[in-house]
Design a binder for these strands. Structure first.
Lengths: 137, 137
DNA sequence: TATTGTTATACTCTATAACTATA
DNA sequence: TATAGTTATAGAGTATAACAATA
């Protein structure tokens, strides 16, 4: 039990700290990054969708999109099916920033895995799948 | 590699979400909780120490300690060795709140572990220790 | 002089309310 | 009428600067 908590505390801290460093490096707030990441996965989004996903009010989305637009990471384009709204899409720079985050950290983790022997790797793979299933399904 | 990332993403999300729920339940901000938790582990702290630990300015510490004091979770007491400063210590209520967080979630995790057979538990224990050592030492 | 902590003030991010344009 | 989004404004939490008290 304590081993579980130690590991999950450490994993969590490691992940959170490296994520916050990434935000700082690119001078983004958490919600600014969330918008970029959401668009990167789901495609162009309407402000009303972003508001629901981020659990923020429409006025706050306007503020966030304005900031991302000024940084050149997103742009607004018309919604052909509804003249009241517009899609928010990412620019090349916006996409690159999210990709950069996705790949970041791989080197370190890969080198740790490479340093393990075959038996360790097999056990690890089995246990991770087991743990994941038990904990999150 | 993907199994690792899936597991660590899920663990991180699970931990972060349950932590934020705890903050909301007690109507605390992240930094208010950080002060309580730090005092609970390290004992009474000077504002200058809290400022360094939380990476905030002294004026912000004053603001946070004022808020915690109003909630009855901490109090200020004189520093006998330096008349300029004072120690911030937690009340019984402040200590109880941190303890509550430490124990929260155990029931769910324990029931998952109880549902595993001996062989699975042994493997899990060994792999968690191995992982923890490789990843964070 | 330097340091600790508080107070006054400004800035950032979010919410609420009023508004415009479109459905 | 109802909805999408913007603008104006207020509130929470942070930083900066000026200050008082002590080292």
């Amino acid at each position: 039990m304590d081993v579980y908590r130690d590991l999950s505390d450490a994993l969590t801290k490691h992940r959170v700290v490296s994520f916050l460093q990434h935000l700082k490096k690119h001078d983004l707030t958490l919600n600014q990054y969330s918008i970029l990441s959401w668009i990167d996965q789901q495609g162009p989004a309407l402000p009303v969708q972003l508001a629901e996903h981020l659990e923020l009010k429409a006025a706050s989305i306007t503020y966030l999109v304005d900031a991302l637009e000024q940084k050149g990471l997103v742009y607004r384009k018309p919604n052909p099916r509804d003249g009241r709204s517009h899609y928010v899409d990412h620019t090349e720079a916006g996409h690159a920033l999210v990709l950069d985050k996705r790949n970041e950290g791989d080197d370190r983790i890969m080198s740790i895995f490479r340093a393990m022997d075959d038996e360790e790797l097999d056990m690890l793979y089995v246990m991770m799948k087991l743990l994941r299933r038990k904990l999150f399904r």
